[in-house]
Nucleic acid binder design. Structure first.
Lengths: 348, 348
DNA sequence: CGACACTTTTGGATCGATCCAAAAACGGGG
DNA sequence: CCCCGTTTTTGGATCGATCCAAAAGTGTCG
């Protein structure tokens, strides 16, 4: 309708229209308490009347706050990260921040390029699921740039350097092993990933701890391989056909576990009765699989929310004490790990 | 290591260090051809030596290009949009653009707020899967702002107003019906969504067209309801228990179709033999379901790539002719829609 | 050697907000 | 009516790049 490419409306125009100075208008835009009520109202009306659009770029130049946050995940196509991102987005929107998103594909190079861009764009904070093999020096570098960084789900080094939000996978796996042991299982195999990152180490630590606790050290066995659904199927097939076939599988994530379920039904075995299967993440699909899949629930959405909240807090208090938020990862027991799979009730 | 909060390095510092003017340094940063090779090299070295970080905000203020793009989807937790986003991200990264992301949750209000933010941030273009009931005026308003906007997957109004990238769902559904008809099916029900948006209308149009073509107008039946996996199960159960139970179901998306498969196995029926099921999207899970699910493949990643490419092109040529890219949505036939489900081969 | 075309470089103005120190307006008491 | 402490408002400087028209440098040729 309008679309006459007239020159853009600026604070100066509003000032003229409302009969005040640029500075006053600026204060109104910043919702400052300094401005008298009547003046504020007049300015706001002028802004609406002229169709003013706040120019965040110009504001940033002077004030160096951008109201943006950078988010890096490995693979946004993975439903887990989709849910994580949903939690982040939800929380940021409520606080009027906007996320930049990039998928690193676990490539250090792509991650580095994106981080450089984020620096140029001067994001107020960074939410980072570090790519595999990210060196600690990268995280330190980000801190040196003066950019708050929250590590999410994974952290580099043995323990997080700065702020961290993740799930208690160690405890989750311990619970899983205990649950299996009370069901009489002894040959319990962990289907892990290939890469060596913190989230992987935590699972392993929980597994070793619980197997030791149950006096099953000698029977502990860790299978390493890729983490897709197909790979899960193949890996499970190979294990189950071996001469010392396990009676229970704890899988790195639900995709692998769902693959394992396929392997079992392919072999004519009944998950839960013939071989127990437990996954990690408790994605939506888990509850609806046949049989329903037991899983260690990592609640990605909640993790996302917490991470975003922590970021907002860190922006406000850059020097505040570093936080390490570890959310519980409860075991959700379903038919795939119960000998008597009569009723499919879920535990909380 | 460094972290002494010394004043930031600017073009002026580089200019002094390299013995040239600010303007020359600026030209080098813009990779302009005007600068002599030797000078360029000297400037670049000075930039590295001083640890310069390009300030995109300052550049934007003057040049009004931000190297950012806004992306709105309904629900980033939905794997379909995860894959779409992956394609977008991939293409944008290659062209050195960075995406802002927001999930509208199909809420007009949240969508509007995000669009306002995008305007303040002066994104170079917008990729928009419009929320349900988005009025055409919103799209026109965006155009009036001088912001290129690509509608993705859905479009408002009867036909897209401007640039559009989507899948040919109409043809996909027509193929699905034809395939079912040649298998002898006559009672073919379409499980649609509740909302009335373009992607829904296209499916319906294809369905009606193909049913008419097969002389099955009277048997055409459309079931409307929610689009989750659980809802799919319930809806399929209700239909199959009815007195005129369909022998084939075409589902709005794969989640609904997978729910329908659950319903069949719950009733002791065999998908493919007793009742055919076809989904839409061909998500990863479809091929691995039991039995494998036939699906109309919408290739979200490819759509994302195309949309991002079109956005980049539109930024370069704002007044170029509007494009309507409709990608083929081929029917992938698997066991769930074959009477003789002996071999599970896939068609292309 | 000077005119001319072409390549490189340059300084000043500019984009549109925020910051800050100081000025103006206000209000109540003496 | 003036003084003084508060509350509001203000102008100029500033953030760090780009744009532009003009100046400086280079090379060629008659």
């Amino acid at each position: 309708m309008v679309s006459t490419a007239r020159t853009r409306v600026t604070l100066k125009d509003i000032a003229a229209h409302a009969g005040v100075s640029r500075s006053t208008v600026s204060l109104v835009m910043q919702e400052s308490e300094l401005v008298a009520g009547a003046t504020r109202k007049r300015v706001q009306e002028a802004a609406v009347a002229l169709g003013y659009v706040y120019n965040r770029g110009a504001a940033t130049l002077r004030s160096s706050r951008t109201a943006t946050v950078g988010v890096v995940v490995h693979d946004i196509a993975n439903p887990f990260f989709g849910a994580l991102m949903a939690g982040i987005d939800e929380t940021l929107q409520a606080a009027d921040y906007i996320p930049f998103l990039a998928s690193s594909g676990d490539s250090l190079d792509r991650q580095a390029r994106f981080l450089a861009r984020m620096r140029e764009h001067r994001v107020d904070a960074l939410l980072l699921c570090p790519a595999e093999e990210t060196p600690a020096s990268s995280i330190e570098a980000i801190a040196d740039w003066g950019m708050p960084c929250i590590e999410v789900m994974r952290h580099v080094g043995q323990s997080p350097l700065g702020d961290y939000v993740g799930a208690d996978l160690r405890a989750g796996v311990i619970n899983a092993v205990r649950h299996l042991v009370t069901q009489g299982h002894r040959r319990i195999t962990l289907l892990a990933g290939i890469a060596d990152h913190s989230a992987d180490r935590e699972r392993l630590a929980g597994y070793r701890h619980a197997m030791h606790e149950a006096g099953l050290d000698e029977l502990a066995s860790v299978d390493r391989g890729p983490l897709t659904r197909c790979a899960g199927r193949e890996r499970a097939l190979a294990l189950l056909r071996g001469d010392t076939a396990p009676t229970a599988l704890i899988c790195h994530n639900d995709l692998v576990a769902l693959g394992a379920l396929l392997a079992l039904s392919h072999l004519g075995l009944h998950a839960g009765r013939d071989c127990a299967v437990i996954g990690v993440d408790d994605i939506e699909e888990a509850a609806l699989a046949e049989p329903a899949l037991s899983s260690i629930a990592t609640h990605p959405r909640a993790i996302g929310r917490n991470a975003a909240e922590l970021a907002i807090q860190r922006i406000a208090h850059p020097e505040g004490e570093r936080q390490r938020i570890v959310l519980e990862a409860p075991l959700v027991i379903r038919a795939s790990s119960r000998i008597s799979s009569a009723v499919t009730q879920e535990s909380t």
